[in-house]
Design a protein around this nucleic acid. Sequence first.
DNA 1: CTCTGAGTAC
DNA 2: GTACTCAGAG
Lengths: 377, 377
Amino acid sequence: MLEAKLAEAAILKRLLDAIKELVADANFECNEEGIHLQAMDNSHVALVSVKLDESGFKSYRCDRPMPLGVNLNSLTKVLKCAKDDDLCILKATDDADILSLTYEARNSDRIAEYDMKLMDIDSDKLGIPDTDYDARVTMPSVEFGRIVRDLSQLGESVRIEVSKEGVRFFTEGEAANGNILLKQTEAVGKVTTNGSASGSQKKKAKKEDGEDNDDDDDVQEVEKDGDEEDEDEDGDKKKVKKEKKKKVKKEGEDVEMDDDEDAEFKADEEEGEEEVDDEEESSSKKRKRAPAKDTKKKSKKAKKSDDDDELPEGIRIEMNQHVNLTFSLKYLVNFAKSSSLSNIVQLMLSNDVPLLVSYEFGQGHIRYYLAPKIGDE
Amino acid sequence: MLEAKLAEAAILKRLLDAIKELVADANFECNEEGIHLQAMDNSHVALVSVKLDESGFKSYRCDRPMPLGVNLNSLTKVLKCAKDDDLCILKATDDADILSLTYEARNSDRIAEYDMKLMDIDSDKLGIPDTDYDARVTMPSVEFGRIVRDLSQLGESVRIEVSKEGVRFFTEGEAANGNILLKQTEAVGKVTTNGSASGSQKKKAKKEDGEDNDDDDDVQEVEKDGDEEDEDEDGDKKKVKKEKKKKVKKEGEDVEMDDDEDAEFKADEEEGEEEVDDEEESSSKKRKRAPAKDTKKKSKKAKKSDDDDELPEGIRIEMNQHVNLTFSLKYLVNFAKSSSLSNIVQLMLSNDVPLLVSYEFGQGHIRYYLAPKIGDE
DNA sequence: CTCTGAGTAC
DNA sequence: GTACTCAGAG
């Protein structure tokens, strides 16, 4: 049987919000390591992979591997009945025909239990080959969402090109064509959070810093001014100041997102790692609408703690080789719904192979794979 | 003629928001006791009863009983022209073909007057039998709203069962079944306000006093712990003390909700009553979410003052006998719109008789009656 | 007092 | 599904 206790129902709610439009039914594969879901989208064009690590649960027990065939629409309805801060307990018996969700209010004076019928789903689970991507772009998830939403108003697809110059998103539409260039955020003098990759960055990734987001990041005391040419400087500035207390991330290097990718970009991962100090709290609160910035610190914070922060800001571009690929914007817009799960998104690209869009959060990750369009389709 | 001055137009606005979806036209029956409205909903399934007590007005005069036939849609439009804190004066001449609404800004620098045509409505006013209900559940109105909204996503109807365990709401739906259990809030050490009902409670109602509400009731200095199990005495206690200045209701006992129900739970009514002293103001602001307790004492402040709070928290369950009834969620969701009128809602149930959902507020009350579903309809 | 989020209505 | 209104939080 399965009995998994999640500290906050909000995680599951956001996860379902992120994938319910893409996939109708899916198997939640539960085993001693945690819960994994992998599914093709309804039109069999994109692939979604979600992992909730056993360590991300308040308590977790799964005696034997079991696939729970869930209708995501039903699960979404059931999850709407949970308050964000409810304790959420998932239970299934070995016959796996019912998934029970129990929500317990903080004060325990209210306990709600929902039983959802499960279904048999043949999982054609495809293995995902490990790929050494030629380029990786790490950016605030809200910024990625903004870009694809903006461009989707003009055209159907976007060409993403990563070059020494940075990463460029091109769209051609009837009304207008558009292209957005993101340059790597300049490493701030010091404290910059996103700074560059540490040593491992092999290639020639460049990191200028463009963004002019408002950022509120957490940069520390350092101050960087960025006025270089156009954009950006202010973005950084502001961030600099805010960070008073944080101690920042620097050291964490590898912990973060190493799972799939490997050596190639491994070094960068650290960003996610940073932990905040204890007191943090600081100002990180606002991430709202600023274009790029955010601050929120919450994202990854480490896989294990409950909440995590990340470096809220900045764009990092790492590349081994120039890549130029075209994707359907419709899917990317859907992927971007995961912004509520992490402040950071990573785009992994190699010519002629599917794009990987990855969001890491405290309890696990959600990854999307999308094959490039070929020719002018 | 009628001339009634209401301290805040907001009360009327909220009242109309609460019933305008349920009823299209209704008679406002005005007499020397106040204004009363009673109407079946458009599909003749539910009954709404609203009472604005004469004492709840800043000034009130009604020379002779007169029914004012109002189109609630029109009245809603007119009320949207008032600011929440405007003084609102209702006037009608004896021929009752026009209702005049005058809004006066706090500082009197703005006076608006609207005249609305009235209509003849045959009121088939049914008497509402006094019922001694077998169970009464008192809970935060927002929580009730949340529960019925949640469950309405899963199914069409809800079975409400009150037992020694607490109150449980069950729904069966295609996607999932759900049940929510509310246990009586644990009585807090002393001060617990809710105490029990006073003497009148005839049956074997039990009143634990669980509530941990913050109650701010008005309990005075006394402290009651209410733990005995059942009964009531405290109910009276509390009211007794509170009354400092207000003339109020104490005496009014009957005033409260007695209309329909009576003896059964009458005692409890007082809760609503308590007034606060003058200084109130106090902290009453927060009644929000604390689970159960909080201390805040402010609550009701009195009917007359502008706002009333109630004990902001906690769930109280009183029952003479196990009840188990099924209702249409659609109506309950509509009833729950009255949450803006009171922080507290009471559900009165007896097997095979209509459910009474009651919201008491400083100036009066709004009550909904809904017949249970029979069998598996 | 302003902003953000949720709920309700069209 | 989109827009508007109301309520709660910062």
